[in-house]
Write a protein that binds this DNA or RNA. Structure first.
Lengths: 247, 247
DNA sequence: ACCATTCAGGTACCATGTACGCAAATGGAA
DNA sequence: TTCCATTTGCGTACATGGTACCTGAATGGT
């Protein structure tokens, strides 16, 4: 074997269609990944253990290692599968703002559908084909402008940073509640609530207090809040580059 | 006991100075946290296991549970200890741009000193006293301006999103290499390198290629790159609010 | 001197990733 | 048809993790 294990999973494609001797494979990377994603969606990544996935497939844990070198590689595959759900036009439309808005909404939808996605994505530097596809579309939104590629990368980075962080904020407490086993409502009321109240009542952080008490956006629906922040990022991009249409 | 375990760690202060009967405590939360941080700094969070920390302190693993309810709470304490290393003036100087630059640099320094900090910070919604202190300083930078608190929160969020993401990018591959046990140089050359080269040579993502090949900022020193991105964020904030001094 | 109270920490249990090895299946060659 | 090299299926086993439980030691008030 050449370069076994010491390379990215994307360099070790599925054992391509052989026609030689030997037992036929009973599973596939895709099938295993799909199962892992399904479990993770329903019960969190920590529930998607090798044994659990195998059991769901009606087999033993060690069978999976015929298809996936290490558990970490499975994460890369899961990320890529989740990103594959992001549907985008083939190319940029010419309306950079519209394209990026579409992109952001799609990423948000994927992030909510797979609450583990953003956490995995930001915890490991991965470059699966679908992430590259999405990234390429983002970069393409600025096609036609006279921007230097570094500026484009910077803007796309700003947008990504916002989208990811916003999704994390939106999921954050929900996920934490699920992880600790409490139902979300009780978690907010009994776990974090009393502490925040104590902090507020102590008066030690007056501006934090105002950001909690006087906030208007806090009472907005999640999508609205997301759109507000997104618009701010897009406005910022427009404001930084006079050559772009302001809006 | 009232509300045991079902509350944030910040609601369960250290067993305050008693004077009743019973054996004297031989350790302290702070001491345990310090040890955990030291191990995590040197060998990664995954090395800071309960057994390892205890062994470092010359005791048994279960002794730690007299001071810390769950391992997750230890993470909160570690985050707070790392954030306590961020040194800031008592109040805003009046120069919002200077204050935020100072803040960003301090956070970056803390993030590099404790390569696990940002990952933990963004993986769990925690609100320790030192995080609140730092956040309050950030909000305070806009004191004197006529901005609504929601806008201030939004800007501070933008800044935080950038700083955290930039630190993650700066550490990213380094950490991944350490996690997999390879030395960083070999990781980049043998693990990720060949794949990126393959992607580039395939020509499937032309804009990604340009962002890799034609980048000028990629060859900058890390601090320079950080400062560039930071300036872009601050420029964006200034551009979005005409009432602020542009620079 | 006694005792309720508190801490130290050993033992034990369960879950996890995964190395290893052998049995079972498979298709080409003899 | 008969073998056999090859590949998959997967049980067993081990190291490592968090942590529940329990016993014994230390301690200060009565």
């Amino acid at each position: 074997m050449a370069g076994e294990g010491a390379t990215s999973i994307w360099m070790q494609p599925e054992g391509h269609e052989r026609s030689g001797p030997g037992r036929r494979p009973g599973f596939s990377r895709r099938q295993i990944t799909r199962t892992a994603v399904r479990i993770a969606d329903a019960e969190g990544v920590e529930a998607a253990t090798m044994r659990r996935i195998a059991s769901e497939l009606g087999t033993g844990a060690m069978s999976l290692y015929r298809y996936i070198p290490r558990r970490d590689d499975l994460f890369d595959l899961m990320i890529d599968l989740a990103m594959s759900g992001i549907e985008l036009p083939d190319g940029p439309s010419g309306d950079w703002r519209g394209d990026l808005t579409l992109l952001a909404r799609q990423v948000r939808a994927a992030g909510l559908r797979h609450p583990w996605l953003i956490a995995l994505l930001t915890s490991r530097p991965t470059l699966g084909p679908n992430l590259l596809r999405v990234h390429e579309f983002a970069l393409g939104a600025f096609k036609g402008t006279e921007l230097h590629i570094d500026d484009v990368t910077g803007f796309v980075g700003m947008l990504n940073d916002y989208v990811h962080s916003a999704i994390r904020r939106e999921i954050g407490w929900l996920e934490e509640a699920r992880r600790t086993g409490l139902d979300p409502e009780r978690w907010k009321r009994d776990y974090m609530g009393p502490y925040v109240r104590q902090v507020v009542e102590s008066g030690a952080f007056p501006l934090f207090n105002r950001s909690v008490l006087d906030s208007r956006t806090a009472h907005l629906a999640p999508e609205e809040r997301f759109r507000h922040g997104l618009d701010r990022i897009l406005d910022a991009i427009a404001a930084l580059t006079p050559s772009l249409s302001p809006r």
